[in-house]
Design a protein around this nucleic acid. Structure first.
Length: 690
RNA sequence: GCCCCCGUAGCUCAGCGGAUAGAGCAUCUGCCUUCUAAGCAGAGGGCCGCUGGUUCGAGUCCAGCCGGGGGCACCA
């Protein structure tokens, strides 16, 4: 990935440090932290310190002397003005210290840097192999039916966070946990065995006969909804029939026991559906390093985790009361009531392990706190050589020529991308881990929670769902796999691609079929990823087709379009135009021409685009620190908007004034590089034409 | 009962304790002979849920209240 060094961040830090030093020297006040801000308008400068207000207070506290903030700011002003890269400092308002950067000087160095970067091969990124490893776990879809938009939010959020961490220079491993032995898989197996009367060979044959528009995971989607009805004897509002529920229990036991026809069918279903999920996510550029399977976690890991939990005193055996016969973890964050026990059951009285229990074991392993060696097999590889591995119960054949799996697990921090509704369970996991491994504590486990994707009433109607009166009055309706209510991920991507293809065909009939398809695909991915990223994590998305299928306004395609426009300028310019522009800059040693250009009102506009473009690293750092990809999405949109304004105001190719033309070329180039990088970090690529 | 999240323009949402609270959509008005209008410009539209508190300064922090959502399973 191309990265320009626009080190405004460092300049800002230098200034901050200078303020701290000067405050001590001049006023004898030690400031713990100096807050800085970007002024609301470019006319007010590039950086502002409201530090004089704080100093006035501190001086008064220390000496009783009352000093006006403006006067204090005045004194600081002179000390800051001598900093390299700073043109001037002004005191404004009640005492703001506004810093104006030396535009011509900085733009000159950005220009040089932006050209160097272009000659560096893409992908030549910093070596991160000796960084501590971070693990991000995401997607985690039950392998029993097609992925829906809620799963997409998880995958896109997780994948983008991974890209953000990597852009911030971190080493990251991506895991996608596969619950191949849970109730949800068992339900679909019940459907095949007891509704369809099929066993493994029949299901295989069925799978092979399915049309491409209704693949195996789609079939399971419908079947799963039918199983829900089956348990209730066909009445959606009815009670579950205990006879039929017993089938579920038997199936679950058979799956756990392994090596029997039911378990083989379950394994087939889970593996096929996981493959479909990887296809779906792959369409959006989402990939994984490892698929840990619950079956292996149970077989090879649980006992060790259980021993450690007992030894640490994190869990205790209940010999009486409601939880008699269970191993429980006491949770003091919740209080017992008539309806709710305060303690969380980890091992049931029948000896089986709850999901939370398994999750604690898995989390301990991810954090390198369980000395377990799994065996791995190649699950899938991609054209570029990337391999997705899966845990396996089999021993590897010694003569096997396949590449050796990397050392998985052992992360310093583990981010779990999981629906906010599971925050309580995540609390339990975090506390369990901290009890077993106090040296890493709770801070090593991060729950990257997000709110659900629900359906707008309009979306429900479009899906042919009749709504109750109260549902219609609500802002959104929750999706339900059990009711088969939801928007399948592939359906949505298909619709986006079809829409983008229509537009591309009407705009660019000259393109080849293949080019049109690939453009439409890029646009569809851009639209969908941006759509899922523009909301902050704790905002419920009320999914609406019109909004999700839009390519205008605050959307991915809007951002892509800005980058495409920028690229088209350079396509029409001579190859040497950029190098010449930089040379013009360097030839103008005193930068008098550049200075003249940038200090006008017009120059304000150019300069604000440059400083915004320069803030990419800041946006990444903020998104990483707050684990909030939406910040970066908003940044990309802002940058695209600023570029579109610039594009509208200035004609580059026809510009006669050489110095001006050079400046415009350099600004456009910096903006397109930063925008392209920002979009790539969001997993959005820029097509050649739109 | 307890815990968590949310309440900002007609709608959907941004907003790090700092200057005149911003986008997109929707409505209205302009702008395509141009490096592509998937665009640009402009207009209207706000007791930032309420009441107190902390602060030089509060949409942002604290407390209480009101309204909405989610959770507190021997489900996952």
């Amino acid at each position: 990935m191309e990265r320009i060094d626009l080190n405004l961040l460092k300049l800002g830090e230098d200034l901050r440090e200078r303020v701290r030093v000067v405050a001590t020297e001049m006023f004898g006040v030690t400031l713990e932290q100096v807050s800085a801000e970007v002024p609301p308008r470019i006319e007010l400068g590039d950086l502002a310190f409201p530090v004089a207000f704080e100093l006035a207070k501190r001086i008064k506290q220390a000496t009783g002397e009352k000093r006006a903030p403006r006067a204090i700011a005045e004194e600081l002003r002179q000390a800051l003005e001598t900093t390299v890269g700073v043109a001037r400092v002004e005191v404004a308002g009640a005492g703001y210290l506004n810093i104006f950067y030396d535009r011509a000087r900085l733009l000159g160095s950005f220009a040089a840097s932006s050209v160097e970067v272009e000659s560096t091969p893409a992908g030549n990124v910093e070596d991160v192999s000796n960084r501590p490893k971070l693990i991000v776990e995401h997607t985690n879809i039950n392998p029993n039916k097609a992925a829906h938009i809620g799963h997409l939010r998880n995958g896109v959020l997780g994948d983008t966070f991974v890209r953000i961490l990597r852009a911030a220079g971190e080493r990251v491993e991506v895991q996608n946990y596969i619950d191949d032995t849970g109730v949800q898989v068992a339900d679909v197996v019940v459907g095949f065995m007891h509704i369809e009367r099929m066993m493994l060979d029949d299901v295989r044959a069925l799978d092979a006969s399915l049309p491409p528009e209704r693949p195996f995971d789609y079939y399971c989607w419908d079947l799963y909804a039918r199983v829900g009805l089956f348990y209730r004897d066909g009445d959606p509002e009815g009670k579950e029939n205990p006879e039929k529920l017993r089938l579920r229990g038997e199936t679950l036991h058979a799956i756990e026991a392994a090596s029997n026809p039911t378990a083989e069918l379950a394994e087939y279903v889970a593996t096929r559906v996981v493959n479909r999920h990887l296809d779906t996510m792959g369409r959006l550029g989402i990939r994984y390093d490892l698929l840990p399977r619950e079956s292996e976690i149970l077989r090879f890991m649980w006992q060790r985790a259980f021993d450690q939990l007992k030894a640490s005193g994190a869990i205790r055996y209940e010999s009486e009361g409601r939880n008699a016969g269970c191993w429980v973890m006491p949770m003091d964050t919740h209080t017992s009531t008539d309806e709710h026990e305060a303690d969380k059951v980890i091992v049931r009285s029948n000896g089986t392990i709850t999901y939370t229990g398994k999750d604690i074991g898995y989390q301990l392993w991810k954090l390198g706190q369980l000395d377990i060696k799994f065996t791995y097999r190649m699950f899938r590889d991609y054209p570029d050589g990337h391999i997705v591995w899966a845990t396996t119960g089999e021993q590897m054949d010694g003569a096997d020529a396949r590449p050796t799996a990397p050392a998985f697990g052992g992360g310093q921090i583990v981010y779990n991308v999981i629906d906010s509704r599971q925050s309580y369970t995540q609390d339990v996991v975090r506390k369990g881990v901290a009890a077993v491994a106090p040296q890493i504590g709770e801070a090593a486990s991060v729950h990257l929670g997000y709110e659900m994707v629900a359906l707008s009433p309009a979306a429900c109607e479009e899906l042919g769902l009749e709504l109750s009166v109260e549902d219609r009055a609500r802002p959104f309706v929750e999706m339900s796999g059990r009711r088969g209510l939801g928007v399948k991920a592939d359906d949505l991507v298909n619709r986006l691609e079809a829409g983008a293809l229509r537009e591309t065909e009407s705009r660019h009939p000259e393109l080849s079929e293949e080019e049109k398809q690939s453009t439409a695909h890029d646009i569809a991915v851009g639209a969908l990823r941006y759509f899922l990223l523009k909301w902050t994590r704790n905002s419920v998305i009320a999914f609406d087709f019109k909004e999700a299928l839009s390519f205008e306004g605050e959307t991915g395609p809007y951002c892509q379009y800005a980058a495409v426009r920028a690229n088209s300028i350079f396509r029409k310019l001579d190859d040497a135009a950029l190098a010449e522009a930089v040379q013009t800059f360097q030839g103008d040693a005193d930068q008098t021409e550049t200075r003249r250009l940038l200090e006008t009102e017009d120059g304000n506009e150019l300069w604000s685009l440059v400083t915004l473009a320069a803030r990419f690293d800041e946006a990444v750092a903020q998104a990483a620190a707050q684990a909030e990809p939406a910040h970066l999405a908003k940044y990309a949109f802002q940058l695209a908007r600023a570029f579109n304004l610039f594009y509208h105001r200035h004609r580059i190719i026809g510009e006669e004034d050489a110095a001006r033309r050079a400046a415009l070329i350099v600004v456009a180039h910096i903006a397109r590089q930063q925008l392209t990088t920002a979009l790539a970090t969001l997993g959005i690529s820029v097509p050649a034409r739109m």
